[in-house]
Design a binder for these strands. Structure first.
Lengths: 203, 203
DNA sequence: ACTTTTACTGAATTAGTATTCATAATATGA
DNA sequence: TCATATTATGAATACTAATTCAGTAAAAGT
């Protein structure tokens, strides 16, 4: 990172500026209502410059999605693959969505508005799809392990994972309309409580 | 209905044919990847004809959404406003999604792909938004009444409704990829069981 | 039969915007 | 300082697709 020339660092910064402006505009208006002219003007570059960084508008969009998906992955995956007990992992997973909601509202808006849902694998961006699939399969394994260890009840793990992901997504979408820290923390607590009341074995 | 001239009935049929083809194409490719030419060709009319029925492509799309939303409303709302006990209403509501999945896969695909989610009020079509809001508020009331009657536990009703709607939506989306009657019935049963294990007071 | 009305048609118009590319500005290193 | 390389520019181009409209066809009325 530090052994790059000023020029190279500038280039990276410029690319980031363009992506950042693109995210703002796409999240606000959607892919098709934002022109390359809009992005260029917003970022303070000429249109031609965008094409020095991205092959096409489509490519720019995909790079943006990959970027954002990567950030989300960095938050969620370490939790799921760590070696905490299943119950703790799941609680942490749910509550880490507070950080996601804070940092990635724009991306989440964009993602859901362009792709429909975070729970289904069907987007344009390969990386996003991979990440969703990874989270899905990690969650599934956690639930199944929990069941086999008798920490969790005998539930249909597929449905639980589907429901949890869908609920968190809908909640974050809802929160992203008007962000309110207290409400988010509280809502996630309710979601946690709610899922565990269903999952936990009465001991 | 029956006291219309042949011509009038033809016109209505033609409109339906156009909407039906539009639904097929939009569901498959999304709004922006389908041209009026495509729809016209698919329905066997000239492009100009579409403009005798619809003011614009945007208007055609909205009419289509309203149409479909109305159908869904006709399935779900009678259940929620009937005078069954809360528990029965909720069980019926969940399981009636089987019929929805069967009849409206294309619409649901389209709707979710264009609007992001069924749980959030934010679409282009006023009617769809009204319907979602109506379902949401009916569900909310059912849960709250159930709680006050001590049939349901003290839960956060907002979160339960959010989660239920999100779960059902995600499940139907998932099912719409490859429809399988048994899987749908089974999944809905799991969802029912899952939500009631959380909701019902141990009596 | 013929006049009028209604419905359909699709080539032509129009509008918007993604992309290109010749040129200008700037940075680098000799 | 100057030659070279890199990066930025935005008017011009090319393309896509929504919309129009003058003309055709069919049906209804007389």
């Amino acid at each position: 990172m530090e052994n790059l020339s000023r020029k190279e660092r500038d280039k990276i910064r410029h690319k980031k500026e363009i992506l950042s402006e693109a995210l703002n505009l796409f999240a606000e208006k959607g892919f098709h209502s934002v022109s390359m002219q809009d992005i260029a003007a917003g970022a303070g570059f000429g249109v031609g410059t965008l094409y020095n960084f991205f092959q096409s508008k489509e490519q720019l969009f995909e790079d943006l999605m990959n970027d954002c998906a990567e950030k989300i992955y960095q938050v969620l995956c370490p939790i799921l693959v760590g070696d905490l007990p299943e119950e703790a992992k799941l609680r942490l997973f749910i509550n880490s969505h507070k950080k996601l909601a804070e940092d990635n509202i724009k991306f989440i808006k964009l993602y859901v508005s362009e792709y429909g849902t975070l729970t289904i694998v069907n987007g344009r961006s390969q990386k996003s799809n991979d990440i969703k699939a990874a989270i899905h399969s990690n969650l599934l394994e956690i639930i199944q392990t929990g069941i086999s260890k008798n920490v969790f009840r005998q539930v249909d793990s597929e449905i639980v994972v589907l429901s949890l992901m869908a609920t968190l997504q809908a909640f974050i979408m809802e929160s992203s309309k008007v962000y309110n820290e207290l409400k988010v923390r509280n809502g996630l607590m309710q979601i946690e409580q709610f899922f565990f009341s269903m999952l936990l074995n009465v001991s």
